[in-house]
Simulated scan of single mutants.
Amino acid sequence: MSYRGPNQFQNQFPHQQIPPHANIGPISSTKTPYEQFELYSKKIEDLIDEYFKHLKPYVPAIGRAFLVATFYEDTIRIFTQWNEQVYYLHNYRHYWRWLTIVFLINNMLIMSIGSTLVIIRKKINIATIALIVVVIIQGIAYGLLFDTQFILRNLSVVGGLVLAFSDTIIRDKRSLNMPGLPMLDNQDNKKYFLLAGRLLLVLLFLGFVFSSDWSIGRLFIILVGFVSCTSIIVGYKTKFSAAIMLTLLFIYNLFTNQFWLYDSRDARRDFLRYEFFQVLSIVGGLLLVVNAGAGEFSIDEKKKIY
C-alpha cells in the first residue's frame, strides 16, 4: 500500500500520531532528477572514500609521480636517442652543434632533478617553475608552439604542476604555525592555484577531441568526458567528475597506447610511448584534483556556504 499522507492513518487511528519524518512507503519517486543525481553522486564519493581510505595518504604522492612521468620519459628518450636528437636539432632546426648539446644536457638534468623534487616535495616552487620553463623552451626549440596537440597537452601538464605547487604551498604554510595556536588563513593563494590548475588540466581532453576519428567508442568517451570537464571547470561535483575522467583516461591509455607491444625499431613504439606518458601525467593531475577538490572558486564551495 503506498503512502497517501498522515490523514489517512489518523482517521483510522485517531490516538496515534505519525511522525513527520517517518519513512512510510517509497518516496524516491518524489525526488527531482537533480536531487537523485546529487544523492547518487554522493554515494559514489562516499564509496570511493570508504574503499580507498587506506590509500588516501599516498594519493598525492602517486598523483605527483604520475604527473612528472612524462618528464622522466623525455629524459630517457633524449639519452637513448642522443644521436638522433642532435642530428635533428643541428641539421633540421639549424642550431649550432655545441648549443644543441648544451640544450639537451640541460634538459635532461632539469627534468630529472625537477621531477624528483616534485615527488618528494622539496623546493617544489623552483622545481615547478623549472619544469614549466622546459616545456616552453622545448616548444620553441622543436618548432611546436603552433601545434595544437602540443599546446593543449603541455598546458594540461602545466595545470597539473600548478596543482602540485598549490598543495605543497598550503602544506608548507601549515607547518609554520606554532603548535596550540589557531591555524592561519591559507586559502588566499590556494583558491587561485586550484582554479588555474583545473582549468589548464582539462585542455588535454580538447586535444583528444580534435584528434579523434569519431568512432562509437570514442564518441561515448567524448560525450561523458565533455560533461566531466565542464563540471571540473565550474567546480560542480569536482571530485566525482575528476574520478570519472581519470578512470576513462586511464582505461583508454592502457588499451590504446600499448607501446610495449611493438619492437624498439618500430616508429609506432616511440609515438605511443610518448602518448602513454603524456596521458599518465594528466591522470596524475586529476588524482590531485580528486584529493584536493575544487577550491573556493567553485559551485561545490558555494553550496557549503549557502
Rank of each mutant, 00 (worst) to 15 (best):
N11L: 09
N11Y: 07
F13T: 02
I18T: 09
P19R: 06
P20Q: 10
A22I: 09
A22Y: 08
P26M: 07
E35I: 10
F37N: 08
S41L: 08
E45R: 08
I48W: 12
H54A: 08
I62Y: 11
G63A: 14
F66Y: 09
I76A: 05
R77P: 01
I78G: 00
I78A: 02
V86K: 08
Y87F: 14
N91R: 13
Y95R: 01
Y95K: 06
W96R: 12
L99Y: 11
I101K: 05
F103S: 10
L104Y: 07
I105F: 14
I113R: 01
T116R: 01
L117R: 01
I120F: 07
K123G: 14
V133T: 15
V135S: 12
I137C: 06
G139H: 14
I140F: 15
A141D: 06
Y142E: 11
L145G: 12
Q149W: 06
N154A: 03
S156T: 02
L161H: 05
L163P: 04
L163E: 04
F165G: 00
S166V: 01
D167T: 10
D172H: 10
P179G: 06
P179V: 07
L184P: 00
K190H: 09
L194Q: 15
L195K: 05
G197P: 06
L199N: 03
L201S: 06
F205P: 02
D213W: 05
I216F: 13
L219F: 08
V224A: 15
F226I: 15
F226A: 10
C229I: 07
I232T: 05
I233R: 02
I233S: 01
Y236Q: 12
Y236H: 14
T238K: 04
T238G: 06
S241G: 00
I244N: 09
T247P: 00
L248C: 12
L248T: 10
L249Y: 07
N257M: 06
F259H: 12
W260E: 05
R273Y: 15
I282R: 03
V283D: 12
G284I: 04
L286I: 10
L287S: 09
A292T: 07
G295K: 08
F297M: 14
E301M: 04
